[in-house]
Design a binder for these strands. Sequence first.
DNA 1: TTGTATAATGCGAAAGATTATCAATTGCAA
DNA 2: TTGCAATTGATAATCTTTCGCATTATACAA
Lengths: 149, 149
Amino acid sequence: MKEQTSPDSPLADLCRQRGLKLTGQRRTIAFVLSDSDDHPDVEELYRRAVAVDSRISIATVYRTVRLFEENGILQRRDFGGGRARYEVADGDHGDHYHLIDADSGKVIEFENAELDALLDTIVQQMGYGLVTTRLSVVGRKKAKTRGGN
Amino acid sequence: MKEQTSPDSPLADLCRQRGLKLTGQRRTIAFVLSDSDDHPDVEELYRRAVAVDSRISIATVYRTVRLFEENGILQRRDFGGGRARYEVADGDHGDHYHLIDADSGKVIEFENAELDALLDTIVQQMGYGLVTTRLSVVGRKKAKTRGGN
DNA sequence: TTGTATAATGCGAAAGATTATCAATTGCAA
DNA sequence: TTGCAATTGATAATCTTTCGCATTATACAA
Ligand SMILES: [Mn+2]
Ligand SMILES: [Mn+2]
Ligand SMILES: [Zn+2]
Ligand SMILES: [Zn+2]
């Protein structure tokens, strides 16, 4: 008789690899995260998790998100607005950056090797080793056609 | 008979130029800000302001800091830690960036024209005009000498 | 499988930063 | 100097996140 409420997911496996106890709630939150390709805040994660398994409290989402971040499974982002937002940590490949549409708030990801290198060089020249880069740019869509949307 | 508690300052002049009513509290906060070359949070600004003129409440510091930011006089910074930090807005010259020492928390400013240009180019190529750059890097001091401090 | 030690959860309270409320005060234009 | 809208101080409210603690579930050994 199966009782498992949420399927396993890549993040659930990561959980095990880190030796974290895999509770039903964590499995559900891991599933929701694996299934997301945006940058939800805790409130939004909670909504998505409850839709999968209603036996979850927001306190556990807060706790799990923190645990996952401490274990390198999640990355916390700050796009302003006063609440933390989360996404699955980049694997091996380089970090990515975020462009926020000033009008819509939409978040657009981008990678740029030159930027990676330049930041590293700058920090090196200042006598430091680069630990973390916190970068997001806010932009406004250029009107390509007159009277454009 | 003079009653003016705080001297005028570059920021106080800016206040007038923007048509903002120049109250005693604002003059004091403007003076404190002009006098600072670091990145104080509101609590710290409050301390410094009270040292100059005790007739100031923290609510007014919050209000003033917000007003100044909305008027381009101040820039709000987020170095993590949950509280906003402030500094006088860069005048004409380009923005600067911040390197945070991972161990001491010390904030080191730097400018880099190549970085300015690269960010602008990247955003342009994505079809946007650059509005704001939010960038800070965390670094750890390289040991230059063995056994170094 | 069953039992147990331990870690995790749910719920509400607490904390910490910032904003809102509102009566009293003040800057400033007339 | 007056008048009045804008600002202030004190404090309550709000918002996000963390804590405390009794209850429950997981991992693991018997
Ligand atoms: Mn933030
Ligand atoms: Mn912050
Ligand atoms: Zn992203
Ligand atoms: Zn600075």
